[in-house]
Each structure stands twice: as structure tokens, then as C-alpha cells.
Design a protein around this nucleic acid. Structure first.
Length: 1060
RNA sequence: GGGCCCGUAGCAUAGCCCGGUGGUGCGCCCGGCUGAUAACCGGGAGGUCAUGUGUUCGAAUCACAUCGGGCCCA
């Protein structure tokens, strides 16, 4: 055992521990040690490799690490491969920005090969940076062996999965409306759309009805640019529609609008005069034909037969008539498919109108809105601007458009039922994350568009024959090489694009150009991480995963993508349990964002308080699934708790070293045999703390098993502060100071050693560095080489003593009540008191304070005696207090006399009689009055210099009255304290001797101390010589002389170090 | 507009499932201890339990509505 640094310096400790782990390869040793245990298959949700980690990412890994460390200590062989998500649009966008690119054309010009190599380089660079940051957090995952979505084996897993999807008939090549980013020129998934406020025109447009003059349908839209693609309007069958005669500027028109909305619409069109000509049910409008108001300038529109249809999504909003452009809206598309409408889409991938859009050709759709309105001319009925939530590309923030294109889909909508069933089988922490949140999300799931028209991703392994249109899904690289007859250098674009396969029809199959949605990459992680399909053994033994944990945003992300892919490929969920965690917010509960300037980085926190405190803070301050409001004060509090842990650990070490203490062990291997064997002979405080640490262990174990790390950590912090520091250490101090051999001291050493060993074991998953540092200093020479090699303590019921814990609880309440009463009585703890009396009716209180822990009570209370009185303490008197209101009623003008009688009567006697239900006669000679229960109340009357305070089930009375003996002791204690203070100021060593002189101004006090305490003081301050005398006598020269005011008595104290 | 979660003293949290005096920590003020000491301990003040309505003898707790925050969706 070594001396321990006086100041707790987390950074120094953590650096040293990390270095120790590196040189001893501790992580590998721990894994090796557990390699024969029951497997615990964990899958790391792969963070995306852009830039540095933030507090939320840190939280995520800290949570994972703590839970996995717990399982390792419980003997599990943890599959702990880290993972990284390294493909996809976010990286492409970053690289594009770095290269100053504006569109896909720039990429093509630059060369796809060069471009993807840039992307690869970017991803790898970031991955290495993130490795380092995670390792600095103390996270023990397999980082060198991490799965990376860019590896050929990984890509193969995605390919294999798609082939499997195809086998199940769940892959569909379809011409559908998808979310489209016109900047990235690709389809994006629902999950990639971000909603933000956008300003758009809100317009009401008149569509002329065919064969009628001056009669129109009025529609509403916020996307005028979709009007060139209009093919129909939709109404609701059951709504009532009105034909309105509207007058404006002396012109009359006939307008069809849903009847309840007429007034509002005409107001927007500034028509003051109008009248309803006729009304019809929506059903009667079906089949009406109309013409496009853009027919003259958009050739495409002239070829379309526009008509009125019914649709159930039409709401009683705006005009009640909905513009339908099946090429540019999801509902429109579904309706169009059902009704056999033309799916027109005169917009290209870059969001520009094609030739068929006539005068708008070449214009960017959002820029063309104004031109469309101009072209509408008189058909524009009303126009205003709205700000509404609109979808944006998650990466480049460009407003998305809907566009009908040819894409590849996973038929999720057909899997919903099975997915919902599987969700129910998964254990969710918290329960509602699955049963409510995730369940609702899946209920509404649509088919998943998995194709992207981009470059940096897993190429979709589909080869199509241009001659016969047949396609083939390739499952593995080997299959591709075999069919193509050529080796594959790299399964990425553009290398894979060059590979062709002969078709059975004689044609040559070419790969479709698309790559996978990056969410599909991570969707296959649970089997890709164990090498499937390349290797199958681990898959058969391990899959599905025992546990995953990610943030609440992954409900629609990874929880979902994995479930979808897995349910199609294997018919079941890829995980058995899921813990959903929250987000890291700022102290006000707002999202941390660069623009708000409220971002706190993990580095900042680590720089101030170190990693373990950050870990303990994050895990203890909120439940995993609640959002974390980051708060520096809270961090400070946890740091203080860590500091107290350090002090508690440090406190006995010097004494143990001095005594060459070594805990009882067998051949250098420590266990708790000594504690078990000697427990019954140990002092109560030792048995208490041993019991407590085992109760705590049981609580911590139960909480951790349920992912309730906040409960586990709070329990541990509470134990350190309350039980260890504030209680046990206070009680055990004197035993540490015993010089020479002592069984009592030895018990204390063994106890505190045992408790520290158990405590650091329980704390090791959360604070891996501090506990390792402490363990390395405490371990016996043949003990396991790391705290992380220890077995978990679930709490040993045989060592738990509930009655004792309860008794100590009572004594601690007593302790607090004493302090309270002393404070009221203005008697410092240093000054002894003659007696403390506890009045109670409770047997447990009586037993704890009066018998079992009486010695502790006396010590804590600094009292000569502590005794318990059941029922009533004879020194407590009762004072009768008249109730004047009642006296006035009962005694009229004699009230005042009665009042005096009551006040001067013997309160005790009065109370006894009245409590027994009798009346008491009080008189002053001339008159006698009957006093009953109505007339008086009783107040407790304490003897002089007795002060009380209440505790649960009892009242504590402290008698602070001084006797000469008590006074002498009190002053003696004051002198001792001051001499010791001066010793410290002189920097004397604990074992140094001194000579001292005390001059006291008050003759009586001087005599008191002199008479009984001179020797006592000399012992306590290690004085060779001590003179106590009245002020004024000649004083020798001392190294230090100080004047003191001791409770109003002036003293001059001089001390010097004794020679020799 | 919809789903889920959260709202308790200046700050952070427990209690809510299963209704019966709202605990705790930090900070603040006062005090104690002085061989854990640039540490440690005690006491005190501080609460419309977001708001409103309902159920009930009784609501922080149950129900409904509103407001505010977060995540997700349309």
C-alpha cells in the first residue's frame, strides 16, 4: 500500500490508469478472463463519422460501457465490437463543400473514383479521431476491430440481405413519388426529411369547367409550380358544394366551393357581393371535366383530360377542392394509381422544368412559382403568403420536392403486422418506448425507398439487362466474381459499375446506378458485425442481439431500420432488449445548438472534472430515458462526492502503512473470510457498515439489471456520503489513532478494507479509472490484476443485518436532534454535557439508544450519560395556560381572577386531574371555581438549561447546565484545540513534542483547568512541559505566542518545539 | 395537426404505477469540528407540486383540457 495524494486530481489519476491499461493490455485480459462465460451479444449502434463527438454521443457510449462492464463482471462474455457508419450523403455533402462543388455535375466532372476516395479518406480520418475520443471516455469496446460499413464483408452483408429480400418477394422496383432533394439530386427516405418553417405562396386558383361559360372550380395550393402537372381535382363525396355568383369590379363569375367555406374564400378574393346559386353533394360533381388554366402555355397540359374525382383525404379546409398532381404528391400519387390517372412529372432531377412544361422549361421549380402565378392571369383568384412546416433535406437543408421516379422499395407495408408482433416480444427500457412510441411509428410505416442516386454508399447489387429488362440480385462478392468471370477490386462505385454479367437472353446485364440509403447499411449491423453471411457460426450461436441502446431519435432510425430489414430477412426482431436514452439539453432544457451558443462539449467537462465524474454525473442526474439538463452546478456536486470518496479512501491509508497492515488473505489472495469469521465479535459500527454495503450492493444490482443506472449511482453516492463519510469514518477515527497492537484497530482496518473493496467493485462499471487506481493500491499481491477482473457483488444476504441498520438509523436521528438542541442551548459540541434524556414510546428507539448503541450515543452527544425514558420524564413539567375565551363564557367578571389562579396553580397536578376527566377546584378563599378540560391547555415546561429537539418517535432533551467538572473539561478542550492549531501553524509533525505556557486572565477558570486537566492537556498536545498560570506572571520566550478569546476568557498561549 | 416523454423551493431531483403530513442534494444564511483539514459536519430559511376543471371525505399522485420544454412524425 502506498501513501495517497492529498488532493484528488482526476486528470492525473485517469491518465495514469489509461497508461496502466495500455501497458498491461488490461482490456484484452478482461475479455480473455470472461471468454468462456455465457455470451452477451451487444451491438453498437454505429455513430456517423462526421467531426467530433458531442455530449449526447458521449452519454450514449458511457451508458453502453457501464452496462457492458456490469455484464462482464457478472461473468458474461460480452460481444463488444464497436461500429462506425461511414457511407452516405452527409459525408458526400462535406466533401462537396470542401471541394467547392455545387451539383452532381461537378462530381461527375471531377471523377467518381476520385470523389469516393475523398469520401473514404474523410470517413477514415474521422473514425480514427472518434476512436480516440471514445477511448478517452474510458469506453471499453473493441475499437481496433470495429465493424465499418465500408468493409467488403460488411457490404456483402447488405447485398446478401437484399438478395434475401428479393427471394421473399419483398423487393419492388417501382415508379413512385418520393421525397427528392433537388440539390443532391437523389431520392431520400421519409426518415431523412427534416421539417422547418418555410415561407410559401398560398393561392386560390380557378379551374374553368368544360362546356360551361364563366364557371370555375376553385382550388387551393402552396405549390403553384405543381400546377403544370395537374391532372385532376378531388372532392369529398359527402360535402356540400355551392355554386356562388361572385361580383368583383362589375364582373360576375360562377365559382364552385365547399358550402361551409364560401364566405372565407370569397373574403380572400375580396368579393363583397356574392350569392349562392345552387348546391350539390360532392358525389354529384364526380366526373365533371375542366380545363387547365395553363393549357395555353404548357403543352403537356393540353394532352390531359382533367376531371373531378372523390378522395377521402379531402378535408373541409380552404376550398374543399384539392388540386391533384400525381407526379408531385404522395396522396395524389396513390389516388392517381387507383384511378388510372397519368403520372406526369415535368421536372428533372435538379428540380428544373423539362421541355414539356412549355414556357417554364429550364426554370427551377421553387423559383417558377411567381411565373406560374403570372401565367394564370385572371385565373388567380386570391394570393397570400403562409409560413408553414416544410420538409428539407437532412444534410444540405434544401427544401425537398416530391417527384415521381423509378426507385427500389422494401415492402414494409406488407410486413407491418409481423413487425408489430415482434416489437411486443422485445424487452423495452422504459416499457413505453416500445409499447407506445415505437409501436405507433410502425403502425404508420410505409414502404421504404432504399435507392439513392448518389456515389458514396453501398452499391445496390442489382444487375439489369437492357435487352430483356430482367434483373438479378447478387448476394455475395463471390457470386458476382463467378457470374462476371472477373475479380472485384472494390465493391464500391465506380469499380463495381464496370462489372457486367451475361444475361440468359444473350444481352449484357449492367448494374443499376443507385446506391443504398445509408440507413440500410446500419440496418444489417446485427448480423454484419458477427461476419454473417461470410461466417455463419456466430450467427447461429449469438443472433439476435441481447441488448442495444440508443437515443430516442433512433425510434425512427436504427431501431426501425434494423427491425424492418430483419423482419423481412429472418422473420424476427434482431434484438431482445432495447434501452432508449434521452438527449443532452442545456440547463434550461433547450436543445444544445451552435446557433444558440449553449453547447457544452465533453472535452470541456473532462478538462474541469475528469472522465469519471462526467460519467457519474451523466448517469446519476437523470433516468437514461429522460432528457438530461446539463448543469455545471450538478457536475460540481458530483465532483465533491468523488472527492469525498477519495478522502474516505485516503484517510486510513497512513495508519495502515504505519502498522504495516495487510488484510487477511490466503497466499496473497484476498477474500472476505476474515470478515465472516469475526463479524460477531466486531463493534456495531463495523457490522453496520458491512451490512450497509451489502444492502447497497443488492439495490445497485437490481437497478443496473433494469438499466436504471440513475438509481444505482444515486444509491452509491448516498452510501459514500451518508454511511461512509458522515457516519462510519467519524466513528472509527479514534480507533485509527490507537498506538501499538489493538484488535479494535485491526477490526477497523479489516472492515474499511472490506468496504472499500466492495465499494470500488460496485462503482467500477461507472467510474472505471478512479476505482482502478484505488484497487491497484489496495490489492493483495495475487489478487486479480484489475478491478475490472473482479466478480460482481450482488449483495450477500448473510451479511445484512436489517435490525442493526434500523438501530443506526435511529441513532443518527438522535445525533442530529442532539446537535439541534445544543445549538438552541448555545452549547458547542466540544463542551461536554451531563445528561441527555430521550423520551419515547418506541421500543426500537429505546433499544437502540438506551442499550445497543448507547456508547455510540454518548460519544456522539459528548454526554456523560444518555438514557431513555419511556412515557414521561419526571423533570418535564407542565404549565397550565388559561383559554380566555372559555373563561369569559364560564366565569364572566371573575375571569381575570380565574386566569391568575390557573397560571399560578401546579400545572402538573392540574394536568393529571384533567387528563383523568375530572374537574379541579381552584379558589382564593372567597370563591372557588371548577376548572375543566375546556378552560386550559398545557405547555411543556423544561427545567432550566434543558433544551429539546424532536426526532422520529422521540424527543431528545439535552441538559447543558455546567458543573465545575464539565466547565473544566470544556475549557481544557478549548485550550487543547488552540494549542493544536498553533502546532499546525508551526508545521510540527504529528509525533513532535512541545513545551507550552498558558496564561489565563480569569483566576477561577485558571484554577479549574490547573487542578484537573494539566496532565490531560499535556497528553493531548504532546507537551513535555506545560505551565498554566494567571495572566501577568513572567512568560518565557516561545516560538509562537498568541492571544485568544476563549468563550470570553482571555488567554495567552505560547508554544515551542521541544528539544530532542 | 398527430404520437410519446417531461414540468415539484434560486437550481437539480425523489415521491406519481397503488390518492391520506411533499422528502433529498446544491446554492444561500447561521453554527460546529479542527490528527480526512484548500477537507468534513450540523441547523435554518425557501414550495400556488406548470395552469384550470373534474372524480373523491381527501389529489403532487387519477381523468380531461390548456400552457411551456424535448424527441419523433404529417
Amino acid at each position: 500500500m502506498k501513501e495517497v495524494a492529498a488532493n484528488f486530481n482526476a486528470k492525473v489519476i485517469e491518465c495514469a490508469v489509461q497508461e496502466h491499461w495500455r501497458t498491461n493490455d488490461t482490456y484484452a485480459t478482461v475479455k480473455q478472463h470472461r471468454s468462456t462465460g455465457k455470451p452477451f451479444f451487444f451491438v453498437d449502434g454505429p455513430p456517423y463519422t462526421t467531426g467530433t463527438i458531442h455530449l449526447g454521443t458521449a452519454w450514449n457510449k458511457i451508458l453502453k460501457d457501464s452496462i457492458l462492464r456490469y455484464h462482464r463482471m457478472n461473468g458474461r462474455h460480452v460481444i463488444d465490437r464497436a461500429g462506425y457508419d461511414m457511407h452516405g450523403l452527409p459525408i458526400e455533402v462535406k466533401v462537396e463543400q470542401a471541394l467547392g462543388f455545387k451539383s452532381k455535375k461537378d462530381i461527375e466532372k471531377y471523377g467518381i473514383q476520385k470523389f469516393i476516395e475523398e469520401c473514404r479518406e474523410f470517413a477514415i480520418r474521422n473514425k480514427l479521431m472518434m476512436d480516440e475520443q471514445f477511448i478517452n471516455l474510458g469506453v471499453w469496446l473493441d475499437f481496433p476491430g470495429a465493424y465499418k460499413t465500408v468493409m467488403p464483408e460488411y457490404i456483402e452483408a447488405a447485398w446478401w440481405t437484399l438478395a434475401r429480400v428479393e427471394d421473399k418477394g419483398m423487393l419492388e422496383r417501382g415508379h413512385r413519388v418520393v421525397n427528392w432533394c433537388p440539390r443532391c439530386e437523389t431520392a431520400i427516405a421519409d426518415a431523412e426529411v427534416e421539417y422547418a418553417d418555410e415561407s410559401d405562396p398560398s393561392v386560390f386558383v380557378k379551374f374553368p369547367l368544360k362546356g360551361r361559360t364563366n364557371e370555375f372550380l376553385v382550388i387551393w395550393t402552396t405549390t403553384p409550380w405543381t400546377l403544370p402537372a395537374n391532372v385532376a381535382v378531388a372532392i369529398a363525396k359527402d360535402f356540400l358544394y355551392a355554386k356562388v355568383l361572385a361580383k368583383k369590379d362589375d364582373k360576375e363569375t360562377l365559382l364552385w366551393i365547399a358550402e361551409p367555406l364560401v364566405k372565407a374564400v370569397l373574403k380572400k378574393g375580396r368579393c363583397k357581393d356574392f350569392s349562392i346559386v345552387e348546391t350539390k353533394k360532392g358525389a354529384e360533381l364526380i366526373g365533371w371535366e375542366y380545363e387547365s388554366p395553363l393549357a395555353s402555355c404548357v403543352p403537356l397540359q393540353r394532352e390531359i383530360a382533367h376531371k373531378v374525382l372523390a378522395a377521402d383525404f379531402v378535408a373541409l379546409e380552404n376550398t374543399g377542392i384539392v388540386h391533384i398532381a400525381p407526379g408531385h404528391g404522395w396522396d395524389d400519387f396513390v389516388l392517381g394509381t387507383k384511378e388510372g390517372l397519368a403520372i406526369v412529372c415535368p421536372v428533372d432531377g435538379a428540380g428544373k422544368f423539362k421541355e414539356e412544361a412549355g414556357i417554364f422549361a429550364g426554370q427551377y421549380v421553387r423559383d417558377s412559382n411567381e411565373n406560374v402565378l403570372v401565367a394564370l392571369g385572371d385565373h388567380l383568384f386570391a394570393k397570400e403568403t403562409v409560413t408553414h412546416r416544410y420538409g428539407h433535406c437532412w444534410r444540405c437543408k434544401t427544401p425537398i420536392i416530391f417527384r415521381a421516379t423509378s426507385q427500389w422499395f422494401l415492402k414494409i407495408s406488407e410486413m407491418r403486422e409481423l413487425m408489430l408482433k415482434e416489437v411486443e416480444k422485445v424487452t423495452w427500457y422504459p416499457e413505453w418506448a416500445g409499447s407506445a412510441r415505437f409501436y405507433d411509428w410502425i403502425k404508420d410505416a410505409r414502404d421504404w425507398c432504399i435507392s439513392r442516386q448518389r456515389y458514396w454508399g453501398i452499391p445496390i447489387p442489382v444487375w439489369v439487362c437492357p435487352k430483356c429488362d430482367a434483373y438479378r440480385v447478387i448476394a455475395t462478392i463471390a457470386e458476382l466474381e463467378e457470374r462476371s468471370g472477373k475479380p472485384l477490386l472494390d465493391p464500391h462505385r465506380p469499380y463495381v459499375d464496370e462489372v457486367t454479367i451475361p444475361c440468359t437472353c444473350g444481352g449484357t446485364m449492367k448494374r443499376v446506378e443507385d446506391i443504398f440509403d445509408v440507413w440500410f447499411d446500419s440496418a444489417v449491423a446485427s448480423w454484419a458485425t458477427i461476419g454473417f453471411p461470410g461466417k455463419t457460426q456466430d450467427f447461429e450461436n449469438l443472433w439476435p442481439a441481447d441488448f442495444i441502446t440508443e437515443g430516442q431519435d433512433q425510434t425512427r432510425g436504427w431501431f426501425y431500420s434494423q427491425l424492418g430489414a430483419s423482419t423481412i430477412a429472418f422473420g424476427k426482431a434482431p434484438y431482445k432488449s432495447v434501452c432508449m436514452h434521452g438527449f443532452a439539453l442545456d440547463a434550461e432544457g433547450k436543445k444544445m445548438s451552435k446557433s444558440l451558443g449553449n453547447v457544452v462539449t465533453p472535452e470541456e467537462v473532462i478538462a474541469k472534472v475528469g472522465v469519471d465524474v462526467l460519467r457519474l454525473y451523466i448517469l446519476s442526474s437523470s433516468a437514461p430515458w429522460d432528457d438530461l439538463k446539463f448543469n455545471w452546478e450538478g457536475v460540481g456536486t458530483i465532483n465533491r462526492a468523488a472527492n469525498i470518496l477519495w478522502n474516505v479512501y485516503r484517510f486510513p491509508v497512513p495508519y495502515m502503512i504505519l502498522d504495516k497492515f495487510e488484510p487477511a488473505n490466503k497466499a496473497g489472495l484476498w477474500d472476505d473470510a476474515y470478515i465472516r469469521a469475526n463479524l460477531s465479535r466486531m463493534p456495531d459500527e463495523d457490522r453496520f457498515i458491512i451490512s450497509r454495503i451489502n444492502s447497497v450492493a443488492a439495490t445497485v444490482d437490481a437497478a443496473t439489471r433494469e438499466c436504471q443506472l440513475h438509481r444505482a449511482t444515486r444509491e452509491l453516492i448516498n452510501f459514500i456520503l451518508e454511511d461512509l463519510s458522515r457516519w462510519y469514518v467519524q466513528l472509527v477515527r479514534e480507533r485509527m489513532w490507537i498506538e501499538g497492537e489493538s484488535e479494535s484497530k485491526h477490526f477497523a482496518y479489516e472492515t474499511i478494507y472490506y468496504v472499500m473493496r466492495q465499494l470500488i467493485g460496485l462503482l467500477a462499471p461507472v467510474c472505471p479509472h478512479i476505482t482502478e487506481d484505488i484497487y491497484q493500491n489496495l490489492r493483495c499481491k495475487n489478487d486479480p490484476a484489475s478491478v475490472h477482473l473482479l466478480d460482481w457483488n450482488k449483495g450477500e444476504p448473510a451479511l445484512v443485518n436489517a435490525e442493526l441498520e434500523q438501530a443506526v438509523g435511529i441513532v443518527r436521528s438522535f445525533d442530529e436532534a442532539c446537535a439541534n438542541a445544543r445549538q438552541t442551548g448555545k452549547r458547542k459540541l466540544r463542551w461536554p454535557v451531563a445528561e441527555v434524556v430521550v423520551v419515547t414510546d418506541s421500543e426500537p428507539v429505546k433499544d437502540a439508544i438506551g442499550r445497543r448503541l448507547n456508547a455510540v450515543c454518548k460519544d456522539r452527544a459528548n454526554a456523560k450519560t444518555v438514557r431513555v425514558v419511556m412515557g414521561r420524564w419526571e423533570r418535564i413539567g407542565w404549565k397550565a395556560e388559561p383559554i380566555m375565551k372559555a373563561l369569559g363564557k364560564g366565569f364572566g367578571k371573575n375571569s381575570f381572577a380565574v386566569k391568575t389562579l390557573i397560571e399560578t396553580a401546579d400545572g402538573n397536578l392540574l394536568k393529571t386531574e384533567i387528563s383523568a376527566g375530572r374537574t379541579v377546584k381552584l379558589g382564593n378563599g372567597n370563591a372557588v371555581f371548577d376548572i375543566g378540560a375546556d378552560h386550559v391547555t398545557f405547555a411543556e415546561q423544561l427545567p432550566p438549561e434543558v433544551f429539546s429537539s424532536s426526532m422520529p418517535d422521540a424527543t431528545v432533551y439535552v441538559d447543558v447546565q455546567l458543573t465545575p467538572e464539565l466547565e473544566a473539561e470544556g475549557y481544557a478542550r478549548e485550550v487543547i484545540r488552540r494549542i493544536n492549531e498553533m502546532r499546525k501553524q508551526l508545521n510540527l509533525a504529528v509525533e513532535d513534542f512541545i513545551v507550552a505556557d498558558v496564561a489565563v486572565a480569569d483566576e477561577r477558570i485558571c484554577a479549574l483547568i490547573q487542578a484537573s486537566w494539566r496532565t490531560g492537556i499535556m497528553e493531548e498536545v504532546r507537551a513535555r512541559e506545560l505551565s498554566i498560570h494567571k495572566t501577568g506572571a513572567a512568560v518565557k520566550t516561545f516560538e509562537m505566542v498568541k492571544d485568544w478569546d476563549v468563550e470570553g476568557v482571555a488567554m495567552t498561549i505560547g508554544i515551542s518545539k521541544a528539544n530532542d
